[in-house]
């Protein structure tokens, strides 16, 4: 069964189109990254999935309509909206009591074990914790919830690299198993490239690229080419070209690896590079299109 299935998902705010007919299918056990510029519709899409906002079109999450069946869905979905949503007045011990009180799928000893690895004191209030600690606390709560779907919307925004790394490490090692599904949006794509199994690029409310990591690795190649071979490389129609230390790095979509190897060093690109290339084409099309 697909964990998330969207067909023709639309959402408008006044005259602004936030989601413009999104089709998406996320199978159980995948880790999907949603990548897009600010205002692309990522958060709107997540809000629709979480039943926080009404929408047009068809959307099923764990087989249910998230807007009309939100109350039954919410205990099977855990989510971190952003780093700053834990109430600042609450004590660590209180938030543990509360979640244990209301959430039938919360495993308190598990949350306590996560917290034991941190410096977070039970008597502290959230407002007394550092930003990194608040994230650790939120993650400890969310990871101790036996949810089928976890949604992370910019979970590491504003955190330093050490905390970010720790965050994804514990997510993968302590939480993820093949029966769960994780959907994550972030601007730090490079950091989660190794974590993801799938990704989509969104722009202006549409999905512009959808790929699994296997497809991505076999389809896209990057060649580092010396100046004298650039012309030959360009003939193979790269989708992006950039200069680093006098050498050209060209990104190819579906090019032949052997052919490229003859021109220079070949490697797999980063998702970020592909993102820049795809967004470049997008804006080019937008400008070129007749008004």
């Amino acid at each position: 069964m697909a964990c998330i299935e969207a067909r023709g998902l639309r959402k408008t705010f006044g005259t602004t189109v936030a989601l413009d007919g999104v089709n998406l299918r996320v199978e159980e056990g995948r880790i999907l990254g949603i990548v897009g510029p600010n205002g692309a519709g990522k958060s709107t899409a997540l809000n629709a999935i979480l039943g926080l906002t009404p929408y047009h079109g068809e959307l099923k999450v764990l087989g249910r309509d998230p807007w009309t069946e939100r109350d039954s869905l919410v205990s099977e979905v855990s989510w971190i909206a952003d780093v700053a949503v834990l109430p600042r007045w609450i004590r660590v011990s209180q938030v543990l009591d509360y979640v244990a009180g209301v959430h039938p799928r919360f495993d308190r000893p598990k949350a306590e074990r996560f917290l034991a690895k941190t410096d977070i004191k039970r008597a502290s209030k959230v407002r007394e914790l550092s930003k990194g600690m608040v994230t650790q606390l939120h993650l400890a709560l969310v990871m101790a919830i036996d949810a089928k779907l976890m949604v992370l919307d910019e979970p590491t925004l504003g955190l330093d690299i050490l905390v970010r790394k720790q965050f994804y490490d514990s997510l993968l090692n302590d939480y993820f198993d093949r029966s769960r599904t994780i959907v994550v949006t972030t601007h730090q794509i490079d950091e989660i490239q190794d974590v993801l199994t799938d990704f989509v690029f969104v722009n202006r409310g549409r999905i512009v690229l959808e790929s699994s990591m296997e497809q991505f690795e076999s389809r896209y190649l990057e060649a580092m080419v010396l100046p004298e071979r650039v012309a030959a490389a360009r003939a193979l129609r790269p989708i992006r070209e950039r200069q680093v230390f006098g050498r050209s790095i060209l990104l190819f979509d579906g090019a032949d690896r052997q052919q490229l190897a003859a021109l220079g060093d070949v490697r797999s690109p980063s998702i970020a590079e592909l993102f820049v290339a795809v967004m470049g084409q997008e804006s080019g099309e937008a400008k070129g299109a007749p008004a």
Binding site: L50, I80, A81, A84, V85, L86, P104
Partner: peptide, 17 residues
């Protein structure tokens, strides 16, 4: 208050209607 301090999103992530 819960909308102003954004904790609304945390409360809504809990199974409380």
């Amino acid at each position: 208050g819960e909308r102003r301090d954004r904790s609304l999103l945390f409360w809504k992530s809990m199974p409380v209607s």
